[in-house]
């Protein structure tokens, strides 16, 4: 799809003064200015305001991120209300920033439902680089990159999330799970 720009165009004297181009540019910007400034008038006249613009007024309006977006990593909470994680520690090893800390919990023989689970599972978002290696390394579909990116806060200590804060029901992660299955299946994992 590469296309070439012809830089040897002979410009006329009038074009070389750049005045028409400057005026054209100013026409475009001032058209946007006046449309946005007085664009609310049809709204008052009873017509629905049609916005022809692409930007989103962020804190009031949100966009749906595509499933490939890598927000903060979260733990999946399966249908039975248990974390899907088996505390194997693969994500801890895969993490290039060492931001994941896991204390595995062992089955003492009484519980039949699950064999292993994380006793503690901390992710320090102040350290995390959102690479997605943990998700890739996980054999159990337990850790996923969510679409949440609003994790700025004033205290660094509070950025270390515990297991309870990290758990998210599977239902909310459906898109991402499907996406990962497709992606990693293609790469023959």
């Amino acid at each position: 799809m590469a296309y070439y720009v012809n830089r040897n165009v002979k410009m006329t004297w009038w074009e070389r003064s750049y005045i028409p181009e400057i005026l054209r540019g100013m026409y475009i910007t001032s058209r946007h200015f006046f449309l946005n400034l007085f664009g609310f008038i049809p709204f008052f006249l009873g017509r629905k305001k049609e916005r022809e613009i692409f930007t989103v007024y962020y804190p009031e309006e949100m966009v749906k991120y595509p499933p490939a977006y890598r927000g903060r990593p979260v733990l999946a909470l399966n249908e039975n209300g248990h974390p899907a994680c088996v505390a194997c520690g693969l994500c801890e090893i895969a993490c290039p920033a060492y931001c994941i800390h896991i204390d595995p919990g062992c089955n003492s023989g009484k519980q039949n439902e699950i064999e292993r689970w994380p006793e503690k599972f901390d992710i320090d978002y102040a350290v995390c680089i959102f690479c997605g290696n943990c998700e890739e390394a996980c054999p159990e579909e337990a850790i996923f990159m969510s679409d949440d990116c609003e994790i700025s806060m004033l205290d660094r200590k509070k950025m270390r999330y515990t297991k309870e804060q990290l758990l998210v029901p599977v239902a909310e992660l459906k898109d991402r799970i499907e996406f990962t299955r497709k992606m990693y299946a293609k790469w023959n994992y």
Binding site: N36, L37, F54, Y57
Partner: peptide, 10 residues
């Protein structure tokens, strides 16, 4: 504000 209005921002 003017740059914002011009660039379709708030």
């Amino acid at each position: 504000k003017q740059s914002a209005i011009m660039q379709d921002r708030i």
